[in-house]
């Protein structure tokens, strides 16, 4: 794949209503189609869900990222999308994962907790690398 790699990191609010079971089912459904479709177009990344907030890293060829991001944008299961980063990258951080998942956990890194606790947070204050690395740390700790 010769096309330039890019990365998108965003945070959004969960709008899925219903009990935990319903939420789990929806997230499984999201991950299911994410993993299937991302594999097809060469996208890797990670999705974090905590306290009503999603944080996602999408990386891959620019066109594929754009198309996937557009599809995700139109998904009414979340809203208030705030872009944290949208930039070219040299290498992938999640090249082993078509969509890694970090769910409700005890050990949530400070940077994400901060995001989750702030309503109407300022995206410019969030460091994309910090989000990226925090999610990665969680994954490798597993």
């Amino acid at each position: 794949m010769s096309e330039d790699l890019m990365r998108v990191v965003y945070v959004s609010q969960n709008t899925i209503e219903g009990d935990d079971e319903c939420l789990t089912r929806q997230i499984e459904q999201i991950l299911g189609s994410a993993r299937r479709r991302n594999r097809e177009v060469g996208i890797t990344g990670a999705l974090m869900f905590n306290r009503g907030l999603f944080a996602q890293v999408l990386e891959g060829p620019a066109t594929a990222v754009e198309e996937t991001f557009e599809r995700i944008q139109c998904d009414l299961r979340h809203a208030e999308v705030v872009m944290v980063a949208c930039e070219p990258i040299a290498t992938r951080s999640f090249d082993q994962w078509s969509m890694a998942y970090v769910g409700n956990r005890e050990q949530v890194p400070a940077v994400l907790l901060e995001m989750a606790n702030t309503t109407g947070f300022d995206a410019h204050k969030i460091d994309a690398d910090a989000v990226n690395d925090a999610i990665r740390t969680l994954l490798t700790d597993e």
């Binding site: 754009e66 557009e70 944008q73 139109c74 809203a79 872009m83 949208c86 070219p88």
Partner: peptide, 17 residues
């Protein structure tokens, strides 16, 4: 209202938000 909501969400074009 749904249209207003959806269009307020970011667009990604040629690696630009």
């Amino acid at each position: 209202e749904r249209i207003v909501d959806l269009m307020s969400r970011p667009f990604l074009v040629e690696a630009q938000q």
